[in-house]
Write a protein that binds this DNA or RNA. Structure first.
Length: 827
RNA sequence: GCGGAUAUGGUGGAAUUGGCAGACACGCCAGACUUAGGAUCUGGUGCCGCAAGGCGUAAGAGUUCAAGUCUCUUUAUCCGCUCCA
């Protein structure tokens, strides 16, 4: 124990303790303010590289500093990892537990539009408020490492990284149909569209063609799936990411387009299928209405105006309309046919909106017998249905299970695996197809027609095309603009800052224009955990030494809602930096866990409009930070949703006050604890230690409560027992632990103490209580020595009054004795 | 429709992974005490029953000496995805 100075100069324990005798009430306000000040002055949580200790990097998702301030949901995650971080420190780890602010975002900009207050101003105020609130809860963040993503010193590196993406061909500009929110007037990534509506404002999203910067996340699709095997993420996160990336294996097959008599038009149509083995069942083909061949061939169709109408109608439909109505519509492309390369037959070609332009090749071969969608379409248009897999009843519905191949030429009699191989081999031999892996994942739309984001550091020159601004000119800072509103053309507010927009080409010096779109709010958060490693570096985003020491993040906790957004983006971003050699390993996070949401007392989501938001300030004011923290951990299983309850909060307050008042019963170190006391203590140490590691915080707190109940029943409490309690409480209620530690006479900080070691041997009872059952029904219990033999246990059990009475007239068939657990008498 | 999760007293939730269901709290009931303190302390509290006892982990079946836990069927709630060829 380091630097223990007993009794602060007083002669005896009794004398020292007198100082506190009149302090009967638990005054959390004074206590918490006092220790927060001391921690801050002593920079108790400041951390630096230390090669003598094992490092531990604990991370929570940094908040967007909204005007509403901290919500009781935020601290659930922060307290959990604070608890873990504090315990790890006491266990000898060099712990990095940082906090910062994800400060670019729409709310500040919308607020600016409403009030004219510059987003930088309101954001700064909000950050100050968040910081005050976070500090009031006593988290062990290293505040020296705090930064925010809208600081030019930070976003300089976000821009620099964008340029690296561009240099490696992973950032590109493309005209494409994007999700457009007509209310926010902004393009959205697929990940930001919820049920066809804008994630933020709820307006229905429409399709719109727009030139967008894209990041080629699909190039990393396979690695983003495969490398999940190397990390410890909860299964829910892994499956969600895998499903979102949506890998599927199949083949691309070329169907020749012909006129009605089979003369080639010289326009091959490529389809994607996962079942090339079913091609003998293909009775028609379908292209998406947006497919380029439709526009190219429009004049060849006998019914070209009908086709054009359908194309126009589809374009008008929103994503939601298009996906919510699953009834099949479409138009046959009259005058052309497709040749099935396997059977050489000519089949009709349709356009239909059930084929999507963004997936595969935007064209399919339809096998109505074995795909329900194709089946439905075939019924509407009265097309033939040819069964090629045995099984089911195709007069009623498609047969989507497997079966032996029939009507399939060279594949007849084969199973799926054989037939797939044969089909692909055939296609390769004849040169009309090859195997192909497809993903649902799309490239990341990286432009936003907004103001409050990182400017994209690119200029457009008539002669040189897109050029990045020279890296030594970074950061490219946001200019001031008179009006924060985007316009209906979908141009960013930056387009009005003409002095800023008009510049010269960094390559040829001719006149050029800056990109006026900004980055999405996911940009800054894609690499923030790297900056924490070396936040004041102005030469690099972080030094290789710092990255090598601190990375990767040992434990990252955050919301499930970020699984297919931030978590996926940042893994991609990090892998790219790894490929460039800037970071030391291929995955950023070793372990990922997720907390459940905190709902209001009525079981509803907390929201301003419902008026059921609980403000942490209120709780800290009325109950104290320690009670608040402990309650957040006790509220229920960490990974599940929980409802806020003021009554339960009160119970936790009672517990905390009880710990405070137990102090009056603590006696000097000379008072010896009994064997039973030691047993209770070690049991508590073991349980709390294990349960923190497993994030079973609610039951860890239960163990502490049981231990405190045990101590409460004592007349006098040996100091050793109380000291252990304080250490175990340090991760949960650090202020109270620190205060009582000082009152015990120590002039060291308890947060620097060593975490107690539990001893399983000492925690063991010598006797065990064993349940005695008759035919599986509980009839009583017996106490036997831990080492008792089966025979002894059985004999003791049979002597039980209750047992003897019940079995006296009956024959005992069998007795099952499981030492340490149970006796079951079968009669 | 597909995928994932959840279901235990009046409430939040425990249950060493097949071995005493309801730990720990909240609430409630009864009592004590009071320098009225977010009071505190003591006892009780799954349901039915005076009791013996019976019943009981969403519903129903099954495996087992023994099931909240394993298997099958059904239901409800929540969360994703959703015409992905």
């Amino acid at each position: 124990m380091s630097g223990k100075a007993r009794y602060n100069g007083k002669e005896t324990w009794e004398e020292w303790r007198k100082d506190w005798q009149n302090e009967e009430r638990y005054n959390f306000r004074t206590i918490e303010a006092k220790w927060q000040k001391i921690w801050e002055e002593e920079k108790a949580y400041k951390v630096d590289i230390d090669y003598n200790k094992p490092k531990f990097y604990a991370l929570v998702e940094f908040p967007y500093p909204s005007g509403a301030g901290l919500h009781v949901g935020h601290p659930r995650s922060y307290t959990a990892l604070d608890t873990i971080a504090r315990k790890k420190r006491m266990q000898g780890f060099n712990v990095l537990y940082p906090m910062g602010f994800d400060a670019f975002g729409l709310p500040a900009e919308n607020y600016a539009i409403k009030t004219g207050v510059h987003p930088a101003v309101s954001t700064k105020e909000n950050i100050a408020n968040f910081t005050r609130q976070l500090k009031s809860l006593g988290f062990s963040f290293d505040w020296d490492r705090c930064f925010n993503t809208c600081d030019p010193e930070y976003y300089k590196w976000t821009q620099w990284m964008f340029i690296q993406f561009w240099k490696h061909g992973l950032a590109y500009k493309d005209k494409m149909a994007i999700n457009w929110c007509p209310s926010c007037k902004v393009g959205l990534a697929n990940e930001e569209v919820i049920n066809g509506h804008c994630e933020r404002c709820g307006a229905e999203v429409i399709r719109r063609d727009k030139e967008q910067w894209m990041l080629a996340i699909t190039k990393y699709a396979d690695r983003l799936i495969n490398d999940l095997d190397t990390v410890d993420f909860i299964d829910r996160v892994k499956t969600t990411q895998i499903n979102w990336i949506g890998r599927s294996e199949g083949a691309e097959l070329t169907f020749e387009l012909t006129d009605n008599s089979g003369n080639s038009l010289g326009k091959p149509m490529v389809v994607y299928t996962t079942r090339p083995d079913t091609t003998f069942g293909v009775t028609y083909c379908v292209m998406a209405p947006e497919h380029p061949l439709v526009a190219e061939l429009i004049n060849r169709f006998e019914n070209s105006s009908e086709v054009q109408n359908y194309v126009n109608e589809t374009a008008k439909k929103s994503e939601l309309q298009r996906t919510s109505d699953t009834s099949k519509t479409g138009v046959e492309l009259k005058g052309i046919k497709a040749r099935n390369p396997y059977t050489d037959t000519l089949i009709p070609v349709f356009i239909s909106d059930y084929v999507l332009t963004g997936y595969g090749t935007g064209a399919i071969m339809a096998v109505p017998a074995h795909d329900q969608r194709d089946y439905d379409f075939a019924k509407v248009f009265n097309l033939p249905i040819i069964q090629v897999l045995a099984g089911g009843d195709i007069s009623k519905e498609a047969w989507e299970e497997d079966g032996v191949h029939i009507n399939s030429g060279f594949m007849d009699g084969m199973d799926k695996k054989e037939a797939m191989t044969a089909a692909i081999k055939y296609a390769q031999d004849k040169g009309f197809g090859q195997p192909k892996v497809n993903f649902k994942l799309r490239d990341w739309v990286f432009s936003r027609q907004r103001y409050w984001g990182e400017p994209i550091p690119m200029v457009y020159c008539e002669h040189c095309g897109w050029q990045p601004i020279p890296e030594d000119q970074l950061p490219l800072t946001l200019p001031n603009v008179p009006d924060y509103r985007p316009n209906d053309n979908g141009d960013s507010p930056l387009s009005n800052a003409s002095e800023w927009v008009n510049t010269t080409c960094p390559k040829c010096g001719a006149h050029a224009r800056r990109e006026t779109d900004v980055m999405p709010n996911w940009a800054g958060s894609s690499w923030y955990f790297l900056r924490y490693c070396d936040p004041h570096n102005d030469k690099e985003f972080a030094s290789p030494e710092a990255l090598k020491y601190w990375m990767n993040v040992d434990w990252y906790n955050g919301g499930m809602e970020h699984t297919t957004l931030h978590l996926l983006y940042s893994r991609f971003w990090y892998k790219f930096l790894y490929d460039c050699g800037y970071v030391p390993m291929p995955e950023p996070y070793q372990k990922r866990t997720s907390h459940g949401m905190i709902l209001a007392a009525d079981g509803e989501k907390m929201s301003k409009s419902r008026g059921n938001v609980v403000n942490p300030d209120e709780i800290v004011e009325n109950y104290g930070a320690d009670t608040f923290r402990l309650y957040e951990m006790f509220i229920g299983p960490f990974d599940q949703v929980a409802s806020w309850s003021e009554e339960s909060l009160n119970g936790v307050y009672r517990f905390v006050s009880k710990v405070y008042s137990l102090f009056s019963k603590v006696c000097d170190t000379n008072t010896q604890a009994t064997e039973e006391d030691i047993r209770a203590m070690h049991k508590c140490i073991l349980e709390v230690t294990e349960r923190i590691d497993q994030m079973k915080f609610n039951t860890a707190v239960s163990s502490l409560m049981t231990y405190v109940n045990y101590l409460s029943a004592m007349e006098k409490i040996p100091a050793q027992l109380y000291e252990t309690l304080l250490k175990l409480l340090t991760p949960f209620t650090p202020h109270l632990a620190e205060e009582m530690w000082a009152r015990l006479g120590y002039n060291t900080l308890i947060i620097t103490e060593k975490w107690p070691e539990g001893d399983a041997k000492l925690a063991e009872d010598q006797t065990v209580t064993i349940a005695v059952q008759i035919n599986g029904k509980m009839r009583g219990t017996i106490n036997v020595a831990k080492t008792a033999s089966k025979e002894d246990i059985q004999n003791t059990a049979l002597k039980l009054d209750n047992v003897a009475r019940q079995i006296k007239d009956l024959t005992v068939k069998k007795i099952i004795v499981v030492p340490g657990r149970i006796v079951n008498i079968v009669i």
